[in-house]
């Protein structure tokens, strides 16, 4: 990890990053956080759908898919 701040959708397959914050408010932020994307969570990019979107991530021991649009709201340190 080179401590570069970026958005979750910018990562490549195999990258591991640390969640800093969710850059959106309201319902979307709550849902992302309740699924476990909280401060300090380590998250790995597992794969992308054949058409590049959505993207599969792994964190807290399980796998979750997010569209680029939502992943773009997650600020991470990579």
């Amino acid at each position: 990890m080179s401590n570069k701040v970026t958005k979750l959708d910018q990562l490549e397959i195999g990258d591991i990053a640390k969640v800093i914050t969710i850059d959106v408010s309201g319902e979307l932020r709550r849902r992302l956080m309740e699924m476990g994307l909280t401060r300090g969570t380590l998250i790995e990019v597992i794969g992308k759908a054949p058409l590049g979107d959505p993207i599969e991530y792994k964190f807290k021991g399980y796998n979750l898919s997010l569209r680029k649009e939502e992943a773009n709201k997650v600020v991470v340190e990579h």
């Binding site: 979307l28 849902r31 992302l32 699924m35 959505p54 599969e56 399980y62 796998n63 979750l64 898919s65 997010l66 569209r67 649009e69 939502e70």
Partner: peptide, 9 residues
């Protein structure tokens, strides 16, 4: 709606 979906093992 957002596609926040768990991919179960």
């Amino acid at each position: 709606a957002p596609f926040i979906m768990e991919l179960p093992p």
